[in-house]
């Protein structure tokens, strides 16, 4: 439906690219789903806080999903992001417990960035300069990160650093978006720092992909490696940089995760790489490369999170129903994309 309407408009004005079309579809579905939830479930969905909660709870996922989007646009894959999150969480938690000075929080941030950067650069080198299959490289990266996490500590490590705990509790309060509780008090809408960071990351990455030479090179690389090479793009360096960015973002995601749940834990962010891939796909990124958009990925995460929220509030509240609903949604999107894209490529001919 949506696709046909867009096509009709596309003929008159400048045509939408595939990425924009897929993104529009996912935004449309998110809005429709949320509107239906507001009508039929009411309650929490009528409050702005609900959207803020979706952002608060999924800040780390939004960041790693954008990391994966960038790698996938470049035609690669990086399944180590969940492992890097758990490693950064654990390392920062241990560091914060050992050092209580005033500078310890910035230093912990640097530590998180450093771990992410090291993993990104290492995997990027193996993928781009030694031409090893990215799936295997990032699988090894995942094993390494998870193994190092358990080496640091098998048991969960709670952060006891007071400054950091204050940072965890501090929330941005927006009173005019709040609601009046039953006892007459105004409860402002609260946004966590992690959510703000996540939105900033999405914005910066969207700008980078659209306006910076590196970003446009990544699209060219994923679209057709051979043509990119012939156009004089340094494909190896571009590929390397896409992994470095994804590693850096996974480090940031790890730190953000720690500000949401201040404890290092070996089983943190299990399977988050698969959630991130699913979110990227729902947002209109193709695994074949060259097509994708970080804004779409943001909506992909929001769609997955909304489904889970709806099921949690419905009578079907059970983990297996959540899994099945996300699986069904993913299947629906994948088939929809395949149909829309093949319809468009037929029209072009």
């Amino acid at each position: 439906m949506n696709g046909v309407k867009n096509n009709a408009r596309a003929k008159r004005r400048e045509p939408l690219t595939d990425a924009q079309l897929l993104m529009t579809i996912s935004i449309g579905i998110f809005v429709a789903m949320y509107a239906l939830a507001m009508i039929f479930m009411g309650g929490g969905f009528l409050k702005v806080q609900q959207i803020f909660d979706l952002l608060n709870d999924n800040a780390a996922l939004i960041i790693v999903a954008s990391a994966l989007t960038i790698v996938m646009i470049g035609g690669g894959i990086n399944i180590s992001v969940g492992g890097v999150i758990s490693l950064t969480c654990m390392a920062c938690a241990i560091f914060l417990n050992a050092h209580t000075g005033g500078l310890s929080i910035p230093l912990a941030t640097l530590l998180a960035l450093g771990i992410g950067l090291a993993f990104g650069a290492g995997m990027g080198f193996l993928v781009s300069y030694l031409e090893i299959q990215p799936f295997i490289v990032s699988l090894a990266g995942m094993f390494l990160a998870r193994g190092l996490t358990t080496m640091l500590s098998v048991n969960p490590v709670k952060v006891a650093h007071e400054g950091f705990l204050a940072l965890v509790k501090s929330k941005i309060k927006i009173s005019w978006l709040g609601y009046v509780a039953q006892n007459g008090n105004l409860i402002p809408a609260k946004l966590e720092i992690g959510a703000v960071v996540a939105l900033l990351v999405v914005l910066v990455m969207a700008l980078l992909l659209r306006y910076v030479r590196l970003g446009r090179n990544i699209y060219a690389l994923g679209g057709n490696r051979q043509s990119a090479l012939m156009l004089g793009i340094n494909v190896k360096r571009t590929c390397f940089m896409s992994y470095v960015i994804s590693g850096l973002l996974s480090g940031i995601a790890g730190f953000v995760f720690l500000t949401h749940k201040p404890a290092g834990n070996a089983s943190v962010a299990m399977r988050s790489e698969m959630d991130a891939i699913a979110a990227s796909i729902i947002g209109g990124t193709l695994l074949t490369g060259g097509v994708g958009n970080v804004i779409g990925t943001l909506f992909g995460v929001l769609i997955l999170a909304t489904i889970q929220k709806i099921i949690a509030l419905s009578p079907l509240n059970a983990s297996w129903w959540q899994d099945m609903a996300s699986g069904a949604m993913l299947g629906f999107f994948i088939i929809l994309q395949s149909v829309v894209l093949s319809y468009r490529s037929k029209q072009k001919k």
């Binding site: 894959i77 698969m274 891939i277 699913a278 129903w321 899994d323 996300s326 069904a328 993913l330 994948i334």
Partner: peptide, 14 residues
Amino acid sequence: MIATLILFSCGRSI
């Protein structure tokens, strides 16, 4: 990988 991600995420629940 994408096509099998569906059953990967919900297979054990089934």
